[in-house]
């Protein structure tokens, strides 16, 4: 048994981007974001750098890649089904400031990225120029407003990056330890409350050390969950935190794509659930 890629089993997702005067698809699949209308991304990036006008599809890819390791994504993103984000078309009082200047190519491209609504893939023309402030907008707003589950997928990718770094003892982890702990806490809290059906349940989350077994138990009037940070990418990001009324503590996977879920049916009991998602395609 192995762990397999964190994204294995997640459905592909697409957004439509107004790019170079046409409607282009940007697709997330196998853990990667691809601009389908731009097969030679590196070549086009070089050309666009010279021309000073970056296609909106590449702008989105660049924005995505700049945040694939950003722990702030875990603060902004949803903690699960009970924590939906809303489409935010502004003007946001403190991050406004996104104001494409007429004739500024990069800003135009960014405006098009921003125009992707969470409500579903659709083509939206950039609005009229807004008041420009001295403050740079927070680019996470653009990513959070992406249609469908893309921002959730980005959160999964961020969690996977930091889980690997934790496992490797990477010295980039300690400065972000508090942020990572909190990211795990919020998602476990929401999942446990959904699992138990008690929205006010007190939950203590302890981040398990490498090699420590995961567990969930009741102590007095609260639930104590001991889970590794990798639970976020391995379990939660795949939408498998609660399966068939069970709280999933860990997942292992064989080469044929059978997921073996180590789950708690109730506090104090453990069971195994298997799901066949097929072999993982090459990422």
């Amino acid at each position: 048994m192995s762990s397999g890629p964190w994204w294995h089993g997640l459905a592909p997702a697409e957004v439509t981007v107004e790019c170079s005067g046409a409607a282009h698809s940007v697709r997330w699949e196998h853990g990667r974001l691809c601009a389908l209308a731009h097969p030679d991304v590196e070549g086009e990036q070089a050309l666009s750098a010279l021309a000073g006008d970056r296609p909106a599809c590449l702008e989105l890819l660049g924005l995505w890649s700049r945040h694939e390791e950003d722990p702030r994504v875990l603060v902004a993103a949803s903690r699960g089904p009970g924590d939906p984000l809303v489409a935010w078309t502004g003007p946001p009082s403190r991050w406004v400031g996104f104001a494409p200047l007429q004739g500024a190519p990069a800003s135009r491209a960014r405006a098009r990225v921003r125009s992707l609504a969470r409500t579903g893939p659709r083509l939206v023309a950039p609005g009229p120029p807004q008041r420009r402030t001295a403050e740079e907008p927070d680019p996470l707003v653009d990513l959070a407003n992406l249609a469908g589950p893309l921002f959730d997928y980005l959160a999964g990718a961020v969690a996977a990056v930091w889980a690997e770094r934790l496992l490797a003892g990477d010295d980039r982890v300690p400065p972000h330890a508090a942020a990572l702990d909190t990211a795990l806490f919020g998602r476990v809290l929401m999942a446990v409350r959904a699992w138990t059906g008690d929205p006010a349940l007190e939950v203590t989350v302890e981040t398990a050390g490498v090699g420590d077994p995961p567990s969930i138990s009741r102590e007095d009037d609260r639930v104590v969950a001991v889970l590794p940070f990798s639970w976020l990418s391995r379990v939660w990001a795949r939408g498998l935190a609660v399966v068939l009324g069970h709280f999933v503590l860990a997942i292992s996977e064989d080469a044929a794509g059978v997921l073996r879920l180590d789950a708690a049916g109730s506090l104090g009991t453990r069971t195994v659930i298997t799901i066949d998602v097929g072999a993982a395609a090459a990422g």
């Binding site: 603060v75 902004a76 924590d83 809303v86 403190r94 991050w95 403050e135 927070d138 996470l140």
Partner: peptide
């Protein structure tokens, strides 16, 4: 504070007024 302010706004919630991030 700014990160959680953004998270609040992304959930359609008001948040405490503050000067912009990076101000």
């Amino acid at each position: 504070v700014a990160d959680y302010g953004l998270a609040c706004a992304l959930r359609g919630r008001r948040r405490a007024w503050a000067w912009p991030r990076g101000a």
